[in-house]
């Protein structure tokens, strides 16, 4: 498998890595200069405590696609997924677009892990919907996973009509309720003053 810029890569290896023989060195060489330990994802090595080390990513098999003060985008190799971390807004459109293109090249069904995403705006949701639209032509899926409670409402309002090839799962792995049109006329009025 080659990355989009033609460099050879193998599972578990970053494009800047020295080689699979030294994953710890590979992690140090990533050069993001930020502690990015995520719960449960730290690679443990014999003789070392799984802990945070300032300035180092304790994760192997992760390519950093973008980082700024608000948002980090990672392409993770095992399991193969695009990870969005932090907050994604208008200032991140081009970065997210490039990342989604990268994910589209790297995966047949595109997995987008939002477990560490605190915020995304309407435009960002739209970018993911548009990806689903493109992939639908080839019968490919988009799976958005790990959706936090804070991010659920914007997905529920915006993913309408819900693309057939888009799955959205919350942090417990449950499918988010397939959202109805927010104001679809219902066949039966419920009587309670909820409105539609």
């Amino acid at each position: 498998m080659t990355t989009s810029d033609g460099k050879p890569s193998a599972a578990g290896q970053q494009t800047t890595a020295r080689g699979p023989a030294d994953p710890a060195a590979a992690a140090r060489d990533n050069g993001l200069g930020r502690n990015t330990r995520a719960a449960g994802r730290t690679a443990t090595r014999p003789g070392r405590q799984a802990g945070t080390r300032f300035g180092v990513i304790d994760e192997v098999g992760v390519i950093a696609l973008y980082e700024d003060r608000l948002l980090r985008i990672l392409l993770q190799s095992d399991p193969l997924a695009l990870r969005l971390i932090g907050q994604a807004d208008l200032t991140h459109r081009p970065a997210l677009e490039q990342a989604l293109r990268r994910a589209e090249q790297a995966m047949a069904d595109v997995l987008i892990d939002l477990a560490e995403l605190e915020f995304i705006d309407v435009g960002g949701v739209r970018q993911m919907m548009d990806l689903a639209g493109v992939l639908a032509i080839d019968g490919r899926q988009v799976v958005i996973s790990g959706v936090r409670p804070a991010v659920q409402p914007i997905l529920q309002v915006c993913l309408w009509p819900h693309p057939a090839n888009l799955q959205v799962k919350n942090a417990n792995g449950q499918d988010l309720e397939r959202p109805d049109a927010p104001t679809a006329p219902r066949k039966r009025s419920r009587g309670a003053p909820k409105g539609i």
Partner: peptide, 18 residues
């Protein structure tokens, strides 16, 4: 198809969307 009009969108934007 039918709806009780009072419930077809409490807000104007919801009504337009309906």
């Amino acid at each position: 198809d039918y709806a009780e009009t009072a419930y077809l969108g409490r807000r104007t934007a919801q009504r337009v969307a309906a």
